[in-house]
């Protein structure tokens, strides 16, 4: 089975994210870059599938030279080879441009299934997997928490508000991974050492025959609106305090 896992390098979840004063992006200095956690679920699922059905796993990513480290991380986990699409025109590209590049790289190679993370924790857009599926003309199943393969088809579980859908899709298809799908493995040391020698192709936009143009652009990055400091709800009547907090959750926080 030929399995592809698309990954993105993102700042660590705990990293200090500060908007630049001029609004042109975030301050990247001092940031620890890691593999997008949702992509890691995808890589893990790809590896599990390979272990079950045989075949190999190709890792594809788009980004500046530093993302090579993320490819190596996936190779250390057990993937066979990598494709690094490195072109300045794609740095910070939107979903459509990124998916265009990925699709161009994938079109040249055989594949039975493609894994993506359901979203990247940097821009939180959650579009690339679906756009990629459209560009390749194959079905998508997104935000998947469980996956089974049988007869050239996948059967997945996808949570929606208040329910879970069990969806079947023929292969090839794009699966976007959600937390809960699996527990990504910890790379073994021989894995890390071997990963250094595994093949990674580096390609630019021209080599892929594409011109990248982002259609959704972040024109300004700003700090979040100040979150009010924690409120202790005062009062003596537990019922009243309970009512107050429920009201705040609904009207201020908008989480229920």
């Amino acid at each position: 089975m030929n399995i592809i896992a698309c990954v993105k390098q993102v700042p660590d979840t705990e990293a200090l994210i500060k908007a630049k004063p001029d609004g042109s992006g975030i301050v990247e200095e001092g940031i620890k870059w890691v593999m997008n956690p949702y992509d890691e679920f995808g890589v893990e699922e790809a590896l599990k599938m390979k272990e079950k059905f045989g075949g190999d796993v190709t890792i594809i990513t788009v980004g500046p030279p530093r993302v090579m480290e993320t490819i190596r991380t996936a190779l250390a986990m057990g993937a066979e080879k990598g494709i690094h699409i490195d072109d300045p025109s794609l740095y910070g590209a939107d979903a459509y441009a990124t998916a265009t590049a990925l699709a161009a790289a994938i079109k040249g190679i055989p594949y039975d299934i493609i894994f993506c993370g359901q979203r990247a924790i940097d821009d939180d857009s959650g579009q690339v997997g679906a756009v990629l599926a459209e560009l390749l003309g194959i079905p998508q199943v997104t935000i998947v928490t469980k996956l089974e393969v049988a007869d050239k088809a996948v059967k997945v579980v996808r949570p929606i508000e208040g329910a879970q859908l069990v969806i079947q899709s023929p292969m090839p298809c794009v699966v976007t991974a959600q937390k809960g799908l699996n527990e990504p493995r910890y790379a073994s040391l021989p894995g890390i050492m071997k990963a250094k020698k595994k093949p990674v192709e580096v390609k630019n936009a021209a080599a892929l025959g594409i011109t990248a143009e982002s259609k959704a652009k972040v024109v300004k990055t700003v700090p979040p609106p100040a979150r009010p400091p924690g409120k202790i709800i005062e009062g003596d009547d537990p019922a009243l305090k309970a009512a107050t907090v429920c009201k705040l959750l609904r009207e201020e926080a908008k989480v229920i």
């Binding site: 660590d12 705990e14 620890k32 890691v34 527990e183 910890y186 894995g191």
Partner: peptide
């Protein structure tokens, strides 16, 4: 790489934020 998942998390935290809890190193 066969060991308790909670310890795997600890190691990842140490790798990414240089502390076992994974609190931002800054």
């Amino acid at each position: 790489a066969d060991f308790a998942p909670e310890l795997q998390l600890t190691y990842r935290n140490m790798e990414n934020n240089s502390n076992p809890w994974g609190i931002g190193s800054h």
